[in-house]
């Protein structure tokens, strides 16, 4: 990272400052990780294997059936890979948000508040764990298998939708991580709740929406819009009917939904931080 020349008091965009600080702290964690190289390798492989087992379980299911909820194994692989990759990216970049509660409890959050960089960037970069590349790798492999094995009627639009889906998906999951972190300002011991939406959401999205109750699908479409991570865009790519009778153009909304989620998460974060600074606990 190039050292920007300049004096101390030049105001900069908070976003730029945040990203820069994030990079600086991540670099420190990478160095730390490399101090325990063997441990890193082992946990990275473990991370890969743990997520791989998930898919092995699906493959075992398909040893007994040809379709699940009307979807074939390669189709589910596409859903699984898309969600896994998006979630993996968010987990890599923001996955440490669930440590916020602990920092609040032991008081170490205060040491971050006296630094001249955004707290969100510092918390997000905390304990940056490169081993989470294992999950992304697994997600990409399954996604690759799905894309190769499914007979897709490729169009230019579909080629554009695919990368947008992965990016928007990780922003949506990232927003959930941030909102979960903000929630821990209020309830420090509730980091588990966030897991329901992140890890739980990821598990949910790995299966086609046809197997879930309508209300559940409605919930993850309109309340916590996880359906935009992969279901809606991927079903469009697969040429399938969208759930809940949604029109086709909804499949192009993920970038918009992602932007809204990010804004909402940012707002939640500000509210949480303000609450912390007025209560100190």
């Amino acid at each position: 990272m190039a050292e920007a020349p300049g004096t101390v008091f030049v105001p900069r965009s908070r976003l730029v400052e945040g990203v820069r600080a994030y990079g600086l702290i991540v670099a420190m964690w990478l160095r730390s990780t490399m101090a325990y190289r063997a441990s890193f390798l082992m946990t990275a492989v473990g991370n890969f294997a743990a997520t791989a087992f998930d898919f092995v379980a699906i493959m075992l299911m398909f040893a007994h059936v040809d379709a699940l909820g009307g979807y074939t194994l390669p189709e589910i692989a596409l859903l699984y890979g898309a969600s896994g990759t998006a979630f993996g990216l968010a987990d890599l970049l923001m996955g440490s948000m669930d440590r916020l509660g602990r920092r609040v409890r032991d008081g170490t959050l205060d040491t971050l508040l006296v630094r001249p960089v955004p707290v969100l960037a510092q918390v997000a970069a905390d304990r940056f764990a490169l081993r989470r590349l294992g999950r992304i790798t697994q997600g990409l492999l399954v996604l690759g298998y799905g894309l190769v094995a499914v007979d897709i009627d490729w169009t230019v639009v579909k080629v554009v939708v695919l990368p947008l889906m992965l990016l928007s998906g990780s922003v949506i999951f990232g927003s959930v991580f941030v909102a979960g972190g903000a929630f821990q300002f209020v309830a420090q011991d509730a980091s588990q709740v966030q897991n329901s939406f992140t890890y739980g959401g990821n598990t949910l999205l790995q299966y086609p929406p046809t197997i879930f109750a309508k209300d559940l699908v409605r919930g993850v479409t309109f309340v916590v819009p996880l359906a935009f991570v992969n279901w809606l865009p991927a079903l469009y790519v697969l040429g399938r009917q969208l759930p809940l009778g949604l029109p086709e153009w909804v499949a192009f909304l993920p970038p918009v939904v992602a932007a809204v989620c990010a804004a909402a998460a940012g707002l939640a974060w500000r509210t949480g931080l303000r609450a912390y600074r007025s209560t100190g606990s």
């Binding site: 300049g6 101390v8 600080a21 600086l24």
Partner: peptide, 11 residues
């Protein structure tokens, strides 16, 4: 080194 960068202290 991190403090150096984070606080943008001239070299």
């Amino acid at each position: 080194r991190l403090m150096h960068r984070m606080y943008r202290v001239p070299d």
